[in-house]
């Protein structure tokens, strides 16, 4: 059995779904944050697999940009979490319910 594009895409779908499950079922904000990173990495994997399939380096350039955006997202996201910790003293999703109603 040789490894084909579809195997990589299926693996990417599985990893993305695990990330979705983490976001939907957990209540700890920092774990939700890690599940988001997982989803982003799953999409990166499908980009790289398709770039290899098409023989086009542009897909890898896009992944480079995605990694840059992820780094910025982590910095700002963790800053928001620390600010929330200061105000509420909690990492629970229920601490963020002020804007709910």
């Amino acid at each position: 059995m040789t490894i084909q594009l579809s195997h990589y895409l299926l693996l990417s779908a599985v990893l993305f779904s695990i990330g979705v499950a983490g976001v939907l079922t957990r209540k700890n904000l920092i774990v939700i944050f890690m599940a988001l990173e997982l989803m982003m990495n799953a999409v990166n994997l499908s980009f790289v697999a398709l770039a290899r399939y098409m023989g086009d380096s542009a897909g890898q350039v896009i992944v480079f940009f995605v990694i840059c955006v992820a780094a910025a997202e982590v910095a700002v996201g963790l800053a928001i979490l620390i600010a929330l910790w200061r105000h509420k003293g909690s990492m629970h999703t229920d601490a963020l319910a002020v804007m709910k109603w």
Partner: peptide, 24 residues
């Protein structure tokens, strides 16, 4: 919802027969 996502991903990959060729 997660299983729906998973099923959708599998279906899209399974239906796109143009993606089943070997790597270039």
């Amino acid at each position: 919802i997660t299983l729906l996502f998973l099923g959708m991903g599998f279906m899209i990959v399974a239906m796109s027969t143009s993606l089943l060729g070997p790597m270039m």
